[in-house]
Design a protein around this nucleic acid. Structure first.
Lengths: 166, 166
DNA sequence: CAGTATTTTCAGAAAATAGTGAAAATCACT
DNA sequence: AGTGATTTTCACTATTTTCTGAAAATACTG
């Protein structure tokens, strides 16, 4: 099987989007490939389609599984492993939000809270403390909203956001 | 002037956060430095504080200005340029949201729309077209919400989001 | 305008990140 | 247990990104 032009462009542009968001480009491309594919793909298909090495394919497939974006499966009578992507866009969003929250936002909150702790009794740092406090509150709020959104059911949130957009 | 330990950690952790989000680490560190500083800083102060070269400092300061996150100013009787950061956290958020929307989300929407265009009359791509359609709608919705949020006034949005969080 | 301070540019160096491919490990089956 | 298929690992290579530092350009001052 070879990809249509449209699928190729899709894989390409999903990959570049991933790169913008600090995600390995190949990882995003594999994800796109599996989204676009109707049936699960083997490591070899992924290698061939994206022209990448086995090591690379393996590593990024594993990483996608860690993120919870794809799953393994198998085909009766075939020893190879096959991979397929979650297709529900909302679930994908929730998964990504949950992971990034955990990996990136929460550590920042911890670190900023430590800074806050250091200056909380220091008179000479009043200005800094105030700015830091505002930042910290903001990040905490964003974190909490993201957490809420990502763990609610889709219908509720979407209807709410639609109102917001009016 | 030398930074307190708290400020140092702040600069450090803001830098790492930036890196997670695809922003040059040094750029984020300079931004943090200027947020934490009570007065505008010259290129030389930035160089010294972060131990970086003039070229690097210059380039990243310029980039921060392009983003609209910092501004130039001058001190009477001094030829040097000085830089200071916007301090309102909400405004900072809006600026960043606007920039990333323009630089990253809108191009993806264009590219995915092109893919859509390519397959819109192709019967054999029905499944792909459907998945693509869902993704595109989702990205468009996210884009539009972000745009809305970033261009509204703070009070309105925050009160709205607070309700969301109940 | 000459002289100096300051900023900008950019070619090459350094560092960080990603990818390769072959060997080792694991697995599934007889 | 032995065999061949498949997956994983990892030392090394390639690529990309970032940084440096000195030269060029620009801006200011008397």
């Amino acid at each position: 099987m070879s990809l249509t032009t449209a699928k190729k462009q899709f894989v390409q542009s999903w990959g570049e989007m991933g790169a913008c968001w600090g995600i390995n480009k190949t990882m995003a491309q594999i994800h796109a490939l599996l989204i676009a594919s109707e049936k699960p793909l083997s490591t070899d298909s992924v290698m061939e389609e994206l022209q990448i090495s086995r090591g690379n394919a393996n590593m990024n497939l594993r990483e996608l599984i860690n993120w919870g974006l794809i799953r393994r499966t198998s085909i009766p009578g075939d020893r190879k492993e096959y991979f397929y992507s979650e297709t529900d866009v909302w679930k994908m969003f929730c998964t990504i939000a949950r992971e990034r929250k955990k990996r990136e936002i929460e550590p920042v909150i911890r670190s900023l809270s430590e800074c806050m702790e250091m200056v909380k009794d220091d008179k000479s740092s009043r200005d800094f403390r105030e700015k830091l406090g505002e930042l910290l509150n903001f990040v905490k709020m964003a974190d909490s909203i993201l957490g809420k959104v990502a763990s609610s059911d889709k219908e509720r949130i979407v209807s709410f956001l639609m109102k917001l957009m009016k």
